[in-house]
Design a protein around this nucleic acid. Structure first.
Lengths: 186, 186
DNA sequence: GGTAAAAGTCAACAACCGTTGGCATATGCT
DNA sequence: AGCATATGCCAACGGTTGTTGACTTTTACC
């Protein structure tokens, strides 16, 4: 019996939590509402996760799962990265949860910075570009800005963009951030 | 007596509100805290602005004040726009208020879309580019993403960027979004 | 100076929140 | 079967929030 009863409710709580956190943000997503979605008692959420903060931490556990793009030609890394990120954003709600919350919650913002420093920067190092920190920051700024406009603020022209067109627009931008010479010396 | 007493307290409330909304977001910024900052009674905030929602609407009144860039050569519009936006973001807290709130508050998100449709798109129309909607959306995605990383999430490499370097990085991206041919036909 | 209106103060309300402890029920093991 | 334990429900607590109404003080005008 690999799947205990408690595992299923635990998973149900997590699913409901991700939906609520993703739709409403940290403050407006109430434990009571999450529990109602999962069809259990609010007290159960506390028993399983200890506190709202810890529940959020569990719901925002995230792995961007960036491939290492080792076999992609240098000039197409931007496109590949853009395509991967769009797929990743649309696969589940986790990234939406994190972005929605990071804007008003310092813990979530720190988590976001960890993802940045722990997953994107190492990749750029492997691609052996110079100044990986600044370049990773610029790539993030475009990737997060696009996600913000498309999935959170829902600007109509960006929402309406086909995934392929989005990749065609964002790819060269990212590639330039990865390869262009620095604007000036230090 | 051009300056009545009530005008001063009204202004004090607005200033405190912008600070709190900008720092904490809509939900966590309490009327009591705003009133305390303005050194008045919470009930006064209600008398002056009616409700928390209306207070926010007043605090988020915004004009991006984009010049029309009529005399700027086509290839430098991106730089000029980037420079203007950075200055605008650092001039006061209004944009921070709006972005922090728009992520979790539908009213604020709609306001953001209004700024986009009412101030940025008309400018692109004047510059007579084709497909102004998509291009304006892309410019927004980069501009907002950069602001997000620099002023809200505070990614260290982006925070550390000199304004001039930021302009040098963002300018060409924006210019490309304004001038590059569309990736494909409709 | 007296008076009506504006500006400000105070206390309280109703609602909602996260969280807790006690109690019932179901489960799984021997 | 019998019992220990895990799982679940219920009611309530303490605290915070937006908001309101009555009351007092200051201001501005004749």
């Amino acid at each position: 019996m690999a799947e205990k009863k408690s595992d299923r409710t635990r998973a149900a709580i997590l699913t409901a939590a991700r939906e609520r956190f993703g739709a409403d943000g940290y403050e407006r997503a109430t434990i009571r509402a999450i529990a109602a979605d999962a069809a259990i008692d609010p007290a159960m959420v506390m028993r399983y996760f200890g506190s709202k903060e810890k529940l959020f931490a569990a719901a925002a556990e995230i792995d961007v799962r960036l491939p290492d793009f080792g076999d992609v030609p240098r000039e197409q890394v931007g496109e590949a990265m853009a395509r991967h990120l769009i797929q990743r954003w649309e696969a589940d709600d986790t990234l939406k949860v994190l972005l929605r919350t990071a804007v008003t919650n310092e813990v979530a913002a720190e988590r976001m910075r960890e993802v940045f420093a722990g997953q994107l920067m190492p990749l750029l190092r492997k691609l052996s570009v110079d100044q990986p920190a600044v370049r990773a920051g610029l790539v993030s700024s475009q990737a997060l800005g696009f996600a913000l406009c498309r999935y959170i603020l829902e600007f109509p022209p960006i929402v309406g963009l086909q995934a392929d067109d989005a990749v065609a627009w964002l790819g060269p931008t990212i590639t330039r951030y990865l390869t262009a010479p620095l604007p000036n010396q230090a």
